[in-house]
Design a protein around this nucleic acid. Sequence first.
DNA 1: CTTACCTGTTCTGCTCAGCCGAATGGCGTT
DNA 2: AACGCCATTCGGCTGAGCAGAACAGGTAAG
Lengths: 253, 253
Amino acid sequence: MAEPKHPVSTVDRTFEIVEVIRELDGAGVSEIADRVDVGKSAVHNHLNTLASREYVVKEGDEYHVGLAFLGLGAYARQRNDIYRVARPEVDQLAEETGELVNLLVEKNGLGVYLYRSRGDRGVELDTYVGKQVHLHSTALGKAILGYRPESEVEAVLDEHGMPRQTESTTTDPGEFFEELETVREQGYAVDDEERLTGLRCIAAPVTDDDERSIAAISVSCPVHRVSDDRFFGDLRDAVLGSANVVELEHNYS
Amino acid sequence: MAEPKHPVSTVDRTFEIVEVIRELDGAGVSEIADRVDVGKSAVHNHLNTLASREYVVKEGDEYHVGLAFLGLGAYARQRNDIYRVARPEVDQLAEETGELVNLLVEKNGLGVYLYRSRGDRGVELDTYVGKQVHLHSTALGKAILGYRPESEVEAVLDEHGMPRQTESTTTDPGEFFEELETVREQGYAVDDEERLTGLRCIAAPVTDDDERSIAAISVSCPVHRVSDDRFFGDLRDAVLGSANVVELEHNYS
DNA sequence: CTTACCTGTTCTGCTCAGCCGAATGGCGTT
DNA sequence: AACGCCATTCGGCTGAGCAGAACAGGTAAG
């Protein structure tokens, strides 16, 4: 659903306001009014309406995103089958490897992080649960697209493009399709500093009965700390194992 | 913020729609229109506007709460200091005790669950992260109110009342203040089937430098499975210990 | 202390956004 | 084939939400 036939502009404005607050990490009425390009009074009315339901909270004279969204967000995630079965597995994988483990699903051609679990040495990243990312520049995304029909991959690339993130990002569709071929052959996907310099990830898809991907699980670690031996050895096996467990539990229960 | 001076009714309607979808666990246009008391076309316009931003998703001909809320919700929680320091401690407590462990904060006179962790024997409950509850009928709420000035407790009771939840719920303010006195003496609060029949909880407050509560941690378990010995022994000590750790980490780091 | 300049908030009147109701179209069921 | 039950579209009317200006409170500078 890209463009509704009869959009309710007030709804758009409301969420623009909330999203601006998040981007600015808290903001006042005037600041928001500038960004959203509506008058202060309108912004004020919106904020107070939102505040009455705790969707935003006023702290001093800054407005912040409220915890009411937490209820809806947690509910939306909980409804997700994959999340329910994958979560314990992701936790265990993080504990075993000590690294950062991620669970990603695809929504409208973009990846959405559903869950993350950090082992005791796991890196801190710019990603967070709920964040949307392009699929072409992460191991997770490649694992997902590798197990989708070619036509669908093309549609995704058409819609969202292949923006360059680092020097190593693949930005050529032809090359990308070759990579996906490799992913299918190997059963896993790798991202070597393609989204973030200094970070490499290895990801495995979770597929349904028809070999269509429904999610992906990855381990992320700093390049300087992990040898190829461990990366393509223990880590690879662990990720593949976990994805397989999730797959089985999801499809046969 | 109870009643804004100039409410934006479209905003209210939008969130009413989303909340109805959650209550019904997915719903169609007509179904929602009945509940919210607006025409089908209006509901339709709202839904499609929301869907264009992934705040709702259309599955077949049912609309569901979308994962876009997850980003905002997770962000709102992450901003919360208490959450950041308490989370690992809550996880550990759940693992040690095997029971359900909860983290609650107060927002506008109501309790909001910030986090929950279920041990291997932990009960399933009607609570979920983000849910709001009255403070007078839970161990968590009593732990929080016990470490707030009397005037504030009165304000909370005035605003939200003391609705009865079970036979054991305290509904008399005088009696309630005596209970809070006991909480302060003991340093922990107990809920013996006051919110839910068959469930008992024990909670400890997390306070700031001025002995003012900022959150509470509890362990919940079925009455039939836990002896008084364990409840007022190991469980009590574990909860108090965890709350204390969180308190120290929060105040001195 | 005064002045100036930020904020957030209130108020009023105008305009167009959003609503209702009716019509349309798509599916399944009888 | 004809009905019933949906979601969706459309047009025309009405009041909701907007801009802009005025007000209030707080802070910094003169």
